Simulated scan of single mutants.
Amino acid sequence: MIHFAVRENAAWCDLVCATHGRPGSLDTDAWSVSRRSPPLYPDAVTLRPGLDAGLLRRIDAGPGASVKDSYADLDLAGHGFDVLFEAQWLHRPPGSPVGHEALVPVTTAGDLKAWAHAHGGGSVFRPDLLTDPRVRILGLADGHGGWSGGAVLHDAGEVVGVSNVFTRDAAPEQVWAGVCAAGAGRHLVGYEQDADLATARRHGFRTIGPLRVWLR
Rank of each mutant, 00 (worst) to 15 (best):
E8Q: 12
A77F: 00
P23D: 10
D73S: 10
L215W: 03
F85H: 10
R22K: 13
G178A: 06
A116S: 15
L153G: 02
A184Q: 11
G183V: 04
I59R: 05
R134V: 01
L47W: 01
G178Y: 00
A195Q: 13
G122Q: 08
P127Y: 09
G110W: 04
S163A: 15
A77I: 02
I59L: 09
A18S: 15
F4D: 13
V16W: 03
L103P: 01
F205W: 06
G121A: 11
W214Q: 09
G146P: 05
G146Y: 08
M1S: 13
L51K: 03
F166M: 12
G150C: 02
A5H: 01
A198Y: 07
R35H: 07
L197R: 06
M1Q: 09
R206D: 12
L130N: 08
G95V: 07
R57T: 11
E173T: 06
P23W: 10
A184L: 06
R126M: 14
F166P: 04
L197S: 07
G190E: 01
T19L: 08
S34K: 09
L90V: 08
R22L: 08
R206Q: 11
I137H: 04
G110D: 15
V213E: 14
G146I: 11
G178Q: 05
A171Y: 02
P210R: 15
Y41G: 02
G209M: 11
